[in-house]
Each structure stands twice: as C-alpha cells, then as structure tokens.
Design a protein around this nucleic acid. Structure first.
Lengths: 344, 344
DNA sequence: CTGAAAGCGCTAACAA
DNA sequence: TTGTTAGCGCTTTCAG
C-alpha cells in the first residue's frame, strides 16, 4: 500500500503539486472547473489525508490544541474535557488531553511541549504551585497562545476562565449564616499540592465568617484511591471532630458520596446538620444518587452548581480566537462564568 | 524569543547539526566527553525541545498513540483512558484521546487520521457498526498498528483486548438461575447504534436462558442526557413492564443509579427483586452510592467487576510492542481479561 | 490559469 | 570522532 501524497495526486491528475495543494486547501486560485474536479476526484479516489507533520512543519499550524488537566477519570474535569473536545471539533480543531496527574513534575514536563510545535495552543488547569513559573514566562514571551481554565498558577498573569471560586464561597457562607447556621465547619481534602480553587474557596469562607464575627472552623480529611473503595479514612477523621458545629461546608461536591457515607458511620449519624457544597450537574450520573442520600438528612442541603459547559466553551472559543488572531484581545482577562444555587 | 533549534545549538557549541542530533537522541556515536557535555549544556541552557513535526516527518515516528473512544465524561471509558495514559507515559509515549461521540461519522473521520502521520498507533473502542470497514481494511493493508479495546467492529479481524463479555453474561445468568431466580428480565438501553458489548451480553444471557429451557425476557429503556437529570423515561419504561419477572439483569452497572431511582418511582417499588449487573470498581466514586442504595433492596445483588486497569495496560503494552516490532506477535488475537464477582 | 523551486527542522546514510 | 548532504511532504512566493 503506497503512501498517497500530493505528488502522486499531482501526477495522476496531470497537474503540479502546487495546484493540488491550493485546491485541496481551498485557497483562492483561479483554476478551471475541470482541473479542479479532476484534482478533487483523484484525492477522493485515494482517500487522501494530508501528512499533518509536513503541513504543520511548513505552515506552523497544526489545528490541534492541548488540554492540560490534572485528573480525568471522573468528576469536573472529565466533563470539562468532554465539552472542550466537542467545541474544538466543531471549530475544526482537534483537542488532545494531556493528563498531568496532579503532579508538578509531570505538569512542567507537559508544559514544555508547547515548544514541540505539535499544538497551536493550550488550555491549562494548573496546580497553583509555582514550580513551572519560568515555563509560563517563556510561553508568554514567545506569544504561545494559552489560557488557564478553572485552576491557575499564582503570580502568572494570564487569561483565566472559571467560576468565581472566591465569591461563590463567600456568598455561600453568607447564605448559610443567614439561614441560621452558626458554626460552619469547612471540610477540605489535605493534598500535597493545594489548588487555587481550594485556596480561594477557603479564603472566601474565612472572610465571610470573619465579616460576621464568626470563628472560622476548618478541618482536613484524607482520601486515597484505596480509601475511596474502603472509605475508611474520612470516617476516622470525622470521628475526631469536636461537636462544635451545626453545619458543614464541604469544599467540593465531588466528595459528597464519601462524606455522607463517613457521616453515617460516625458519631454524628443522627445529628441535625446543614450541608453546603459546590458542584456541577450536567452529565453527572452521581447527581441522582446524591439527592437520594441527601434526602435522608434532617438538615438543609444547598449546593452551588457550576456551569461546566459554558466554562469549557468560553475558554475554547477564546483560545481559538487567540490562535487565529481574529480580534484584538484584552490581555490577562479574568472571565467568571455565573453559577446557580440548588437547594433541596 | 528566537526559536531554538538544532542549528542554533550546533553553532553555539561549535559542532555540526548531526552531532547535536546524535547526542541529544542518545544514539551510539563516539563523541569526546567534552563535546558531548558542551552540547548537552547548551541544549539545557536554551531548554531545547525538539520540533516533533520535523523529527516525525523524517523518522516516521511520533511516539504518540491515539485512543479512539466513544464517550469520555464518566464511567468505564474515562477510567480506561486514564490507565492507558499512565501506562503510555511510563513507556515514553503520549496518549491522546479522540472522542468519537458514539457517532459513526465522527468515528470514521477520526479513523482516517491514521494516515495523518501524527500517531504511531491506535487503541480503538469502536462501534460494532460496519460503516468503517474499509478504513480498517486499509489500516491493516498498510500495517498501521492498532487494536480494539473493549468494543470492536464485527467482520474485522484484529487484536482485541477486553473482558469476555459473552461468557461473563452467560455465567452470570447461570449463576442467577442457580440462586433461584426464575424469570430474569434483561434490561438494556435502546441505542441508535448497538455496541459489540451490549450484543455479546445479550447473546450470553439468551443462550444461558435457553440452555436452561427458560424464556429470555428482554426490555429496552431510553435515557437521554436530559433524562439523566430529570430521570423520567426510564421510569415510564419500568411501569410498562409486565409483572412476570423476579430478577433484573441490567446490562451495564453504569445505569444502576438511574435504574434504582426509576424502580423506586415505579409500581415495583416494594417488589422483592434480585439484581444482576456488570460493572467496574477502581476509581469509581459511584460505587459507595450504589452500595448504599442497593442495601435498601430486599433481594440479592450481584455484579461482575471488570478489571479496567489490566485491560488498559495489556492493550497499551501490546500496541507499543506492535509499534516497536520488538517481538513477533500473533495476529488477530483475542485477549480476555478475567473478571470477579461482587455479591452484596 | 499554472508551475518551479525554496525551505520548514530534523534524521541518517555516507564521507572524511 | 565528526561533518556533508539528501531528503521527509507540504506551503507559498514568484515567475511565467
């Protein structure tokens, strides 16, 4: 099976390579209708697919964008990626996922790929960690199109598309206080590397508490991949907590199933408890399960719903605009996508 | 910020381009220690990253493999992809996900990318649909490395790595019958395009029923993305079912939350019911929620657990072996990864 | 309307 | 031990 390339098609159609290239790429050139058809026909006949390495090498464009995200198996990011892929495809781009595995080294390694000429741009959900600062700096200096999506790195001035995590958390806490919650316990996962999201939510919570002259009450939990199946550690942690809280602000809805299970196994099993969290709906199959479990609570349940689809599409559109230089874009813009409440 | 390429490094280090290439690629060449160090140092200084378009164009190798899968937001495939990425990365490859959106046209379009020279090989979870048959044929004729993972296309002879869906379903049905289930209802989602997996499970169920002189009892349900949130249709369907069954074989555990919710809203709410399904554990956060809900059932619950990690790693290893031609590989081999039961 | 030709950055056979 | 050189397949300028 011989490789079909422009040369072969040119020979077959009795024209030059140039003309084939121009016709197949829809470039404006005045070709006779018949030659054009002859070219298109032979291309079709051989099911011609351009060698993207060659065309990219010359044109400096691959029409591929990379998504750098920390964790794809489930939850927020897999949905985000799904919507980005869809949007990119609609606009004639391939979106490619590079998993950074929530690991600063992997992340830096992956970031360096911006120089590989493989990708026209990058959407990055980064660790807030600063170990990759110099790479970002280089990307900016060489005008490589990229923007942060949901999670960003501190000290790097760049476009960001996300929910307003700080405000969401601040408002939620205020709302909780207004609803009569007094001692709200902020629960968050203890990670080697803290994300900008977690940090902002924590800050929002703390500021709202202080603004109402309340004492912030915070507690970490741990949950490894094994724990997720065994569901042990989170329970242990819960039992350690002093009984000085009437509400829980779980920093991410992703952990709701684990939290509810842990709660059920803890000494707080029958406590009247209000629960607040931040989540996303969309394609999430867990939603129903969660609602079911929440129904059994004797307190209130409020969650903020993030609009993943709009986040994904806004970011994709903006990145592609940057790549194609269509419009003059304001630099280092923060775009916050509105959220909604769900109360049940 | 000037582009750093081999030429620049060669000039800087006062050697030829060739030598730089050889040294940076660790090719066996006898260089003096000092020149080698000088080359490595200048490369490091500029943070040199090779232009993969250029190197790929010449060497015909990109060290990138593509995963073609139908649906990434959650469930089986996102985990599968996660493990493939991890394994590929460990072996020096980048794994790139191309979502086929469960759409024959998109799938065929994506398959054609094998000719783009971007990917050294492909792992494919295909529709069983035959519309792409000719592409597969071409891939085989041009010796492009690929293999099917979990889902395959009928009539295409190729390597397959998956659970033995037929046997799993057959054995499960037998087990159910042995446990005293008499009238087992096989519930499956009505799709425009039926997958090989669904077909094999259905076949296994039917054959096992017939082997015990029982009447196969089957029913489809529908569930669109909107339904997933509203959870309407599945309930409607359930209410239509005649009360001639004592057990349900739900063809995929992915639908358990919806099924249980639907059950709860149906006229079978308090019926004693045994439930059988096929699922995967690993990173799946739903697991706990499901167990919780299943606890409320008054019948038995048995599920087959697929070993996603092993499926992913076996497939990745084999594809890379094919790419690197390390060993003589048997053609068109079906590799079945063992499963386990979970009874609760 | 169409073609010749240069060259993108890299690899590898061949020379020296 | 190191350098010369010929492409890989495509895009694009410039010349007919």
């Amino acid at each position: 099976m011989a490789e079909v390339n422009l040369k072969k098609i040119a020979e077959e159609a009795g024209v030059s390579i140039t003309l084939v290239s121009l016709v197949l790429n829809n470039k404006k050139t005045r070709v006779s209708k018949t030659t054009k058809e002859r070219i298109l026909d032979t291309a079709k006949k051989y099911n011609y697919v351009p060698n993207r390495l060659a065309s990219g090498l010359k044109s400096k464009k691959t029409h591929i964008i990379a998504i750098l995200a920390p964790f794809t198996p489930n939850g927020f990011f897999s949905e985000l990626i799904y919507y980005i892929e869809r949007r990119a495809m609609k606009k004639g781009y391939i979106a490619v996922v590079i998993n950074t595995f929530h690991d600063p080294k992997k992340e830096e390694e992956s970031l360096h790929l911006y120089k590989s000429n493989l990708y026209d741009g990058m959407l990055i959900s980064s660790l807030s960690n600063s170990s990759s600062n110099n790479v970002y700096q280089n990307m900016k200096e060489s005008d490589f199109p990229f923007l942060f999506i949901d999670r960003y790195t501190k000290n790097i001035e760049a476009d960001i598309v996300s929910s307003d995590h700080y405000k969401v958390s601040f408002d939620m806490t205020k709302k909780a206080l207004n609803k009569g919650s007094d001692n709200i316990l902020f629960l968050y996962r203890k990670d080697q590397v803290i994300t900008s999201t977690a940090e902002l939510r924590m800050q929002g919570y703390q500021d709202a508490m202080k603004a109402s002259s309340k004492n912030p009450l915070m507690q970490t939990f741990t949950l490894s991949e094994e724990d997720k199946i065994q569901n042990t550690n989170m329970c242990d942690k819960l039992n350690l907590i002093e009984e000085t809280f009437d509400s829980v602000f779980l920093y991410s809805g992703y952990y709701m199933p684990y939290f509810l299970e842990a709660l059920n196994q803890s000494k707080f099993k029958d406590k009247k408890l209000n629960i607040y969290t931040v989540d996303s709906i969309n394609l999430d199959q867990n939603w129903i399960s969660r609602l079911n479990q929440v129904e059994k609570l004797n307190g209130q349940f409020v969650t903020v719903i993030q609009d993943i689809k709009t986040i994904a599409e806004t970011a994709t559109d903006r990145l592609i605009d940057k790549i194609e230089n269509k419009i003059e874009l304001e630099d280092n813009k923060k775009i916050f996508i509105p959220t909604k409440y769900f109360e049940g």
